[in-house]
Amino acid sequence: MIAGIIIAAVVAILVIWVIASYNGFIKAKNNVEESFSTMDVYLKKRYDLIPNLVETVKGYAKHETETLNKVISARNMAEGAATMEDKIQGENMLTGTLRSLFAVAENYPDLKANENFMDLQGQLRQVEEDIANARKYYNAVVKLYNNKCEMFPTNILAGLFHFDQKPMFEVETEAERQNVKVEF
């Protein structure tokens, strides 16, 4: 009789733990998805600014079409990415091409003095700050989620219920680790 009560208590505790852990995974997964969606809003804002910025630069730097085309191509690739991993890779490429665009702009003093360019640059600077903050938040919630996926005993449930680790939003090359200069 007492052994039956002890077994029932252990089973009840185990069931409660499984339910609580599963719900914790769902909450963590939803936080990851919400943080990625928030970052995606800022990325969309950046995508919308880039064509205006490119058009402004085009008027001053007509012979820099290769750089301008690379920026637009990188923007389109990042915007059209289907998975988180592709989006992260596309964003890293876009950041590099934007760096090239601002390097081109450095060679044109009239462009640097253009009010429209300065306004677009200021908007882009603000969006880049928002993106950086959203990336920090995304990486923080991904870290919590990934910890649940890897740490014992919740890693057992992660495997059973197919909760897979999520990618961090990291820079991929040493060149991308350099500061993007958007000040003129």
Results as ranks from 00 to 15, higher is better:
I131K: 04
N146V: 11
G122W: 03
K58F: 04
V10H: 04
A132R: 12
Q178H: 07
L68Y: 00
M151G: 01
N133D: 07
I72N: 05
T65K: 14
L14S: 12
E183L: 12
E33A: 13
V41T: 13
A103D: 01
P153H: 09
T97F: 03
M1I: 10
S21W: 02
S73F: 03
A78Y: 01
K29E: 04
A134V: 07
V142S: 01
P109I: 13
V32R: 06
I7R: 08
A61K: 12
N114W: 01
E55L: 11
L101R: 10
A9T: 15
E170V: 15
L111K: 12
A78S: 13
E176W: 02
L101D: 01
S21P: 02
I2W: 00
V180W: 01
V141C: 04
A175E: 07
L94H: 04
Q121L: 10
G122C: 04
K45M: 11
N147I: 14
I5D: 00
N69D: 11
N133K: 14
F36L: 13
Y22T: 08
P153Q: 10
F184T: 12
M93W: 00
I50T: 07
E66P: 00
S37F: 01
H63C: 04
L101E: 02
L157G: 06
T154I: 05
A175R: 10
A113E: 06
D86I: 11
E106N: 09
P109K: 13
I19V: 15
D40Q: 12
Y108C: 08
T56F: 01
Y22K: 12
Y137F: 10
I5Q: 06
D48S: 15
L144I: 12
H63Q: 07
H63E: 02
R75A: 07
D164F: 05
V180Y: 00
V11Y: 03
T56H: 00
E170H: 12
W17Y: 11
E66F: 05
K70C: 05
Q123E: 09
G59V: 12
Q126L: 11
N155H: 05
A12C: 08
I131C: 00
E150S: 15
A113C: 07
M1P: 05
